[in-house]
Design a protein around this nucleic acid. Structure first.
Lengths: 336, 336
DNA sequence: TCATTTTCTGTAAACACTTACACTATGGCG
DNA sequence: CGCCATAGTGTAAGTGTTTACAGAAAATGA
């Protein structure tokens, strides 16, 4: 069943059928109705490949993320998919994993599918080693690229992100304002977004005229950052005599590890120790006490990504970089 | 830059270039090498649409899920995407929402993309009202369908699921075996999977010769099942004088609500009240105490779905229904 | 050496659409 | 009534692949 069959049944040419399918204005109402009737009762569905060939687009966006099972990325996927779908674009998913190599082949595959645009998540994996970013520059030549929470200056690469530095600074400031003196900083990424957050932590201390104690900086490797890992690490710090009365984490799950540590040692939250997470995940409400966390405006970011993409595909001039402001959501794990 | 340009540069016909691209054995090593050289240095990427048109496939699987931000579905997406990708299939995502209507248009859209197969998640939305399933029967005519945790007998529809009834029964049995007398059952779905779980709860009671107290059955609506909703509901039950010493939930987040209720009333878990969830989500480890939950073998299910799909696409005969056995993962929210 | 098979390559016809261009009515207007 | 603009329709040429078929060249065997 193809356009040819329809044209014969409706007694018109294939051009007319095509025009009906594409809502062309150059069809008389009577003809349109007749053709539509045939299409409807035959159950005909236009061949997407042929259409793609003719139009050179299948209205598809490539979504690249390191790990779709991560709640934050899953949420982003859901937001993006919905917004793109409402604009008649489908999304093809590429969960590449975290290695640079895997990302490169992921982008390569999406490119070979001739997607109309790509959204790259997991900017935290974008290193500053410029050579590592060649694949982005390369891909941008053939397709518009938007980075979610990434920053990269390059033609046809657009960035939509949260001001992680400022948000982290405000979170730290809140801890200091509520009487915390020694804030343990837990982080899991040393790349763009990670560096910004760390800078925010530093800035908060500086604003208060406090010196940074390097022993309060705890880095966790990607594959060694489970709740147990974090708890055990903090217990170690205790043994070493490193004292702290607050924990600021670059991701909610790390903060949960700190809460487990508090439970293990009997420290009360927030009376004896305050905890702040990052991302404002759903499970911030699951813990006891509920976790204060930074909302980094994922929905706004995703909506803006989609708008930007649509603009770019329409040939409009679009801002290369858009920054949203995060917000500390106060809950029970910090003092008033 | 198309196959024509390559053929000219390499001094061969487009057929030969095509054969090189498709690893056809009917090309001499010398020619293959020459063509490959040209392809590599020109950065040529075959046009996926034209290829799709010729082969009538773009090696794409449609993934249909109600909500990608739900951790369970996100995990499934990640498993599926990875397994399909390793077999050179891309996935296009369709997060339809929960209404029947939305699911129908979701399937419709995937069909119009001419995907090679579809995986439908959120079987809990498959009603037994047979008319509601016409869209599945319809879609199955043009493309093989696999239901994740759904059950539906129809040509070209395959089902891969967990034996939810048995798993729930074992969970309830564990509660009874550890001394619980009155198990509150929290559930959120009245469709296939939901009914099976409820049946498991009933069966466990029956096995012990216990009567079912209808007042211990708590149903939560899809949009009224937040942690707070559940906690508040249980507090209400308290007021009404409904007593219970255990909670069995059809989903982990409901169980978390029960834990919040325990916190609010000062009941100790598991000493005064045991709690069991379902799905064995990551956040079972986040709570205090850690949540006993049913592992319904999602990874195994997803792997088997992909295998089944590949078999079907290869024209092999595949089992219409495969059932995995769930497992109760014991943690701190239940007694020994 | 010649017939026969095998290996390699090219020609051209699909594949199912879109769309530029040409053509035919049709109606308005002088 | 002829002229022209316009609306509606059809013809045919793309779009970039795959692949059946044919043909040429090389290898094999008698």
């Amino acid at each position: 069943m193809n356009i040819y069959d329809i044209s014969k049944r409706a007694g018109v040419s294939i051009a007319t059928v095509s025009r009906v399918l594409n809502d062309s204005p150059h069809v008389s109402p009577a003809t349109r109705q007749r053709v539509m009737a045939v299409i409807n009762d035959s159950g005909y569905v236009p061949n997407a490949f042929a259409r793609g060939l003719g139009l050179n687009t299948m209205k598809t966006i490539g979504l690249l993320c390191p790990d779709a099972s991560d709640p934050y990325q899953a949420q982003a996927l859901a937001y993006l998919e919905n917004a793109f779908r409402s604009r008649n674009y489908d999304c093809v998913l590429s969960c590449t994993g975290k290695t640079l190599e895997a990302r490169i082949t992921g982008v390569e595959l999406l490119k070979s599918r001739h997607v109309d645009g790509m959204v790259l998540m997991g900017s935290s994996f974008i290193e500053n080693n410029d050579k590592d970013n060649d694949y982005i520059r390369q891909a941008a030549k053939s397709v518009p690229l938007i980075l979610l929470n990434g920053s990269f200056a390059c033609e046809r690469v657009y960035c939509v992100l949260c001001d992680d530095q400022r948000a982290t600074m405000e979170a730290a400031q809140h801890l200091l304002d509520t009487g915390c003196k020694r804030i343990l900083y837990l982080y899991h990424s040393k790349n763009y977004s990670g560096r910004k957050k760390l800078a925010g932590y530093r800035a908060a201390l500086k604003n208060k005229g406090m010196a940074l104690d390097e022993s309060l900086l705890c880095y966790f490797d990607q594959d060694k950052m489970s709740v147990q890992d974090v708890r055990d690490h903090l217990l170690e710090l205790d043994k070493k005599g490193v004292a702290f009365d607050a924990v600021l984490a670059s991701e909610d799950s790390l903060a949960i590890g700190a809460m487990k540590y508090a439970r293990a040692t009997g420290k009360r939250i927030p009376e004896e120790m305050s905890v702040v997470g990052y991302n404002n995940s759903n499970f911030c409400l699951f813990t006891e006490p509920e976790l204060t966390s930074v909302d980094n405006k994922l929905k706004a970011i995703c909506d803006h990504i989609v708008e930007t993409m649509m603009g770019v595909l329409d040939g409009k001039e679009m801002p290369q970089k858009t920054v949203f402001t995060g917000e500390v959501v106060l809950r029970q794990s910090t003092r008033k």
